[in-house]
Every structure is written in structure tokens, then in C-alpha cells.
Design a protein around this nucleic acid. Structure first.
Lengths: 109, 109
DNA sequence: CTGATTAGCAACTATATGGTTGCATGAAGG
DNA sequence: CCTTCATGCAACCATATAGTTGCTAATCAG
């Protein structure tokens, strides 16, 4: 339903960095923030923040809007649902087959 | 409640590769498979498969068991729930933008 | 025992990634 | 107009990642 998204691997890869997860956390309150705002408490350069935002943008996790001289980013949470669905699919498939087969080896040397 | 896993970033990073997602998909039926079995249809070497499995192991996504001369891998889906919870937290915070407190609960069927 | 199979170890290569710095550009604001 | 602030662009560096090959060790099937 999301539309523009790419592969799940690309999405998870975008989530696979602590700095980017922090940026998502900052945007999770629904606010719009500029690049400098988003990098305010971070120990990295503005350019590094911009690159991270590019990755998030490429995965469809944020949206860019230009406002005057600054660029504002907002979270786009639809694609998070895609990630969740992928996880649920794997989990439910695993749960389903576990009910059928009981030859589950729990060997620990 | 999963226990052994590290940061969410590490977990998502482990999921951020199409080959590894494929391996997880293969194991999602609850089966135990050896390294060669898991690499059977893949265009990469056995060693490459082993490295991917190491990454999945490091993220707590699979479990290793030695059986004779082969090493069997099984999916360990608890940590998938952790990933899902992280996504749900962000999403629910975004949904309830104005201080609506919403519990993220572990639904366990 | 012999030979095939499964895996581990190590070295090596190529590319991706996360980070930096320097400089240029465009929009506010006095 | 001149300065300041927020970006953009490009080159560059170091490390991580994904992959390879070669060789060794252990286990299973004859």
C-alpha cells in the first residue's frame, strides 16, 4: 500500500544504523526539522547528518520539503508498516509450522 | 524478553541484506539446515553463506547446533519480536502525536 | 583404510559505508 | 550591499562488508 518503496533489504539496511535510528526517533513526534536541527546534539558533522537523511529518504522513511533556504524532513511511517509486515510474515510462518512439527532439537553443549 | 540480543541497530543491520533475508525465509518453516543446504540455490560460495550465517547468529536471529560433521541452523524468532516492538513504538508515537500514551504490548498468540 | 563430504581458518580483493574538509550557492536580515 | 546561515557539491580517507580462493581438520560411507 505504500507505493514507492524498494526492497525490504534496503529498508532494513536504512534502519541498521544507530545514528539513523536516533534521527527517526527525533522525527517520531511528527515534527518537521531541518538538517542542522537534526544534527544539533550529534557528535558528527552536518554533512554526515545529510548523508544519513539521504539514506532514510532513499528507503522512503522520510519526506523532504524545501522551505526557503532550509530543507525540512518529516517521518513517513507507512513504510515502517511494510517492515512490520515482513517480520510478521516470517514469525507467523514459523509459528505455524512449529505447531505441526515437534522434532525441535534443543541441544546445548 | 529475548535476552541475548544487542542493539536494535545491529538487528536491523543483520536484516538489511537480501541474501540474509533469503536465508531467514528458508528457515522460517522451522527447519534445521546445514550451511551447504542453505547455500544450495545461491550464486555465492559456501564461505560467503557461512559469513552471512555468522552475522545472523551475532544478531540472535539463528541458533547453531552441531550434529556430527555438519552444523545446523534454526531460526530463533524471538528477536524478530524485538524488532517489531521497536517499529511499533515509533509508529505509535507518530500516531499519537500529542502526548497520547499508548502501550506497546507484546502480543503473544 | 580410503575417499568423499562438511566445515573452519586465513589471506586477499573490491566495493560500500560513515566520516571528514573545503569551497560554492542561495536565501534571509540588517 | 554585505553578512550570515543552511545547504549542496566534490574530493578524500579509513574501515566495514561481501565476496573470493587455498588449505587443513573432522566425520561419514564404502
Amino acid at each position: 500500500m505504500s507505493g514507492i518503496e524498494g526492497s525490504p533489504a534496503r529498508l532494513f539496511a536504512a534502519l541498521g544504523d544507530a545514528t539513523r535510528l536516533g534521527l527517526i526517533g527525533r522525527l517520531s513526534d511528527g515534527s518537521e526539522r531541518s538538517i542542522v536541527q537534526l544534527g544539533e546534539n550529534l557528535p558528527i558533522s552536518r554533512q554526515a547528518v545529510a548523508k544519513h537523511l539521504d539514506v532514510l529518504l532513499g528507503a522512503g522513511l522520510v519526506r523532504r520539503t524545501r522551505s526557503g533556504r532550509e530543507v525540512l524532513f518529516t517521518l513517513q511511517p507507512e513504510v515502517l508498516v511494510d517492515a512490520r509486515n515482513w517480520l510478521d510474515q516470517v514469525k507467523s510462518q514459523w509459528d505455524g509450522t512449529l505447531g505441526r512439527f515437534r522434532d525441535f532439537v534443543e541441544n546445548q553443549p
